[in-house]
Design a protein around this nucleic acid. Structure first.
Length: 758
DNA sequence: GAGTTTGAAACT
DNA sequence: CAGTTTCAAACTC
């Protein structure tokens, strides 16, 4: 079976994801008759549903398996259970992994003199430990599809070998725990079987509440085929174009090798240091092969439709042999890989790299020659398509299994990590890329464990929004480095498939996507907006006058005119960024140094220059930041110091005002709650009883009766020749009696109703 | 909401 | 580096 059709192959992105982490699973089910879905357990940290759907459409067994998988339930608490054919759909955080078998690719690989590495569907089991949580593994178990003639014939290794398991650990821990109770019987079996582990190191655990993060490992094509693979220096704001096929690949590695043996790789990585503290970084993880000889990395497809977030990546080992060799129809399509190492070298700001795919729906697995399996992210809609396959693996009898990871509308949350966290993390000699997640829901920082001096400087000042443009004519894939927040914006927007056939326009597509919410004025967006909208009119939002720009963010929901602070004007924006950085390399770094928590050593990096405000108005950056002026300030008439009575007064007033606001807010909330509660109580009564409040009893008949009573009283008064005043009194008295009777009747009816309902 | 004040950023 | 201009936010009315 062809893993990837030629057409699809042609569409493959330059970056090829290594699927090796998932591969190497000899067929364990000799009989293979029983095709049943294998459970895939995913740690609770992933709220999203994962559906594993084998891409082998040709296989009946597979199809059955898929069907059987339908309705797979996922437990939110512990391991989530998934079925095997993998389909990780992007939409709604669903990840669809399409597993594809590629005998053809394998043959091609063989012809290329490369030992094919195939992931077998039969008995394949992929163990993925919890992302960020060591104790909660993600177990992916592929269906036992043994007995597939195609595979067996092709590879001839599917005999009775026990299935191999690959454990992918996402987390910073070096120790792997093969896992796992709660996975069911299959897990038990699993333990007895061979395990292959790939570890994706993450620094901090991801909270369970965090949105699904897709960690993609990407091979760094540092060796073999592209020996000259050198990362060209990246200049802030520079647009990097991908090299065309056949040219040395350029790698952007987001991760760092876990294995010590892989340390050499670091030199070939480009580190992107964070610009700003508040910024977030998305991405990256690192898969590090456990074995020295064969490096197996799981690579996520770079070619992802907009809106799909790729969090990462990985690198292959340095010593690995040539990866790309001519694989018949595949090799030609193999494109140089580009990877970026997102490194947090003391940088405070992190960026998110979003792969830009011009063809979001393309599902393909491209397995370039060697030992790596490449996975490509595609939209869920094409999940059924088969991918291609694999490269020779170092391990002996390994069957290459083409994997297609489709991420239809997958959106990944953008982690936001405080700069301090990053700083703390950076020094640590992590074996692989470090992923830091401070807050469960949003913040995650992934950074390389080791600094990459040669490259980092280039990215140190690289502001968010930097776009790595796709190679001309090459893959339509590009990377856009954007502020995490921007990514968040993307997440908040409804997924829109970007039809970007041309290379760079993809960025515009992103922008389009980002702007959708603007017009739509989504509530979530407005509420989540971290800062006030700017009102720039003359600066085009490309100068530091603009808060958005100064904070490395794109304008969104702003009131600015002629705004260029968006991806549609990426060129201008990058140019402006560069200009700012030329003027002041620290331009995009936070002005307020942040001391440790609880400490008061926060101070303005440059100090203020206030002359007339006494540094007690928000004109003063120090005061605005709620910090006191320091010795570096050049202000005149400063009153913003500790003992300043004016300051204390202001602070008290401010506190009082704040308290008032809080009280008012609380009062409103309480009132609102009470109203809601009242409505909740009354509504059922009305709905159930047709209205049992007293006023509901004032029906036409009641009114007529009441009026008759009143008229009767009037007549009595008239007959008794009572004065008008007395007549009015009698009538009013009678009216009061009528009301009392009505109310009494209503009360009885209500009580009766209540008793009945009970 | 319009106009004024202010100080950072940009420019010379 | 200092002085001036530009700019957008903060502020006032």
């Amino acid at each position: 079976m062809d893993v990837v059709s030629p057409e699809l192959t042609s569409l493959l992105p330059d970056e090829i994801m290594d699927t090796e982490a998932i591969e190497d699973i000899p067929q364990s089910q000799p009989d293979g008759s029983a095709v049943h879905p294998l459970p895939i357990s995913i740690s609770s940290t992933l709220p999203s549903l994962l559906t594993l759907k084998p891409a082998m459409a040709a296989s009946i067994a597979t199809t059955k398996t898929t069907d059987s998988l339908t309705g797979t339930s996922f437990s939110t608490g512990g391991l989530q259970r998934l079925t095997a054919p993998f389909t990780i759909s992007a939409a709604n955080h669903q990840i669809i992994l399409n597993k594809v078998a590629s005998s053809q690719a394998t043959e091609a690989a063989k012809s290329a003199g490369i030992s094919p590495q195939i992931i077998k569907q039969e008995g394949q089991k992929l163990l993925v430990t919890t992302i960020g949580k060591s104790g909660q593994p993600i177990v992916l178990q592929l269906p036992h599809t043994g007995g597939k003639p195609g595979l067996s014939q092709t590879f001839g290794d599917n005999k009775s070998q026990a299935p191999q398991f690959k454990v992918v650990t996402i987390g910073g821990r070096s120790e792997l725990k093969p896992v796992v109770g709660g996975a069911g019987n299959q897990l038990t079996t699993l333990q007895a079987q061979q395990l292959k582990t790939v570890q994706i190191a993450t620094k901090t655990p991801v909270s369970s509440a965090a949105p699904i993060k897709f960690i993609i490992t990407k091979t760094v094509n540092s060796k073999g085929l592209c020996p000259q693979t050198s990362v060209s220096p990246v200049i802030a704001g520079r647009v990097l174009t991908q090299t065309s096929a056949g040219l040395p690949s350029r790698t952007i590695t987001l991760s760092e090798p876990h294995n010590s043996n892989m340390q050499s790789i670091s030199g070939k990585k480009i580190a992107i240091s964070p610009l700003k503290t508040p910024s977030k970084v998305t991405v990256v993880s690192v898969a590090s092969p456990t074995s020295n000889a064969s490096h197996k990395s799981l690579t996520l497809p770079v070619n992802v439709a907009l809106g799909q977030q790729i969090l990462t990546v990985q690198q292959s080992t340095s010593a690995s042999p040539v990866k790309l060799k001519s694989l018949s129809n595949i090799s030609q399509n193999i494109k140089p890989m580009q990877s970026v190492t997102m490194g947090g070298v003391g940088g405070s700001q992190f960026k998110t790299i979003i792969p830009l795919a011009s063809q979001p729906n393309v599902q393909q697995i491209q397995v370039p020659g060697s030992r790596f399996h490449y996975v490509r992210l595609v939209t869920a809609t094409t999940a059924s398509s088969s991918g291609h396959l694999s490269g020779p693996s170092t391990s002996s009898i390994q069957t290459a299994k083409p994997m297609v990871v489709s991420t239809g509308a997958v959106r990944m949350s953008v982690p936001i990590v405080p700069a301090q966290t990053i700083k703390q993390m950076a020094p640590k000699p992590l074996t692989s890329a470090t992923v830091v997640t401070t807050t469960p829901t949003q913040q995650r920082l992934i950074m390389p464990a080791t600094p990459l001096p040669q490259i980092q400087p280039n990215f140190t000042n690289l502001p968010p929004g930097t776009v790595l443009a796709p190679a001309p004519g090459g893959g339509n894939v590009g990377y856009a480095v954007v502020p995490a927040q921007y990514v968040t914006q993307l997440q908040q927007t409804p997924f829109v498939t970007l039809a970007s056939s041309s290379g760079f326009p993809a960025s515009a597509g992103i922008q389009t996507q980002a702007r959708l919410p603007l017009n739509g004025l989504s509530t979530s967006e407005t509420t989540s907006r971290p800062r006030k909208p700017c009102n720039c009119t003359k600066s085009q939002c490309l100068k530091l006058y603009c808060d958005c720009f100064a904070n490395g963010e794109f304008c969104n929901n702003c009131n600015c005119n002629n705004c260029f602070n968006n991806l549609e004007h990426e060129t201008e924006r990058l140019k402006a960024i560069k200009t700012c950085l030329d003027r002041n390399p620290e331009a995009f770094k936070p002005k307020i140094g942040k001391g440790k928590e609880g400490e008061s050593d926060r101070r303005h990096s440059k100090g203020c220059n206030c002359k007339r405000s006494g540094c007690l108005k928000n004109y003063c950056e120090c005061y605005e930041a709620k910090i006191m002026c320091s010795s570096i300030c050049k202000c005149i008439g400063c009153k913003n110091f500790e003992e300043s009575p004016e300051r204390k007064t202001l602070m008290h007033l401010a506190d009082a005002a704040e308290v008032r606001v809080l009280q008012q807010t609380a009062a409103k909330t309480k009132l609102s709650s009470q109203i809601s509660d009242l409505l909740m109580r009354t509504t059922p009564v009305i709905s159930s009883g047709g209205g049992r409040l007293p006023y509901t009893f004032v029906t036409k008949e009641v009114l007529e009766a009441t009026c008759e009573c009143l008229m009767e009283q009037a007549k009595k008064a008239e007959q008794a020749h009572q004065p008008q005043v007395e007549a009015e009194r009698m009538i009013l008295e009678e009216f009061g009696h009528c009301l009392m009777r009505i109310i009494s009747s209503a009360g009885k009816a209500k009580a009766d109703c209540a008793s009945i309902n009970c």
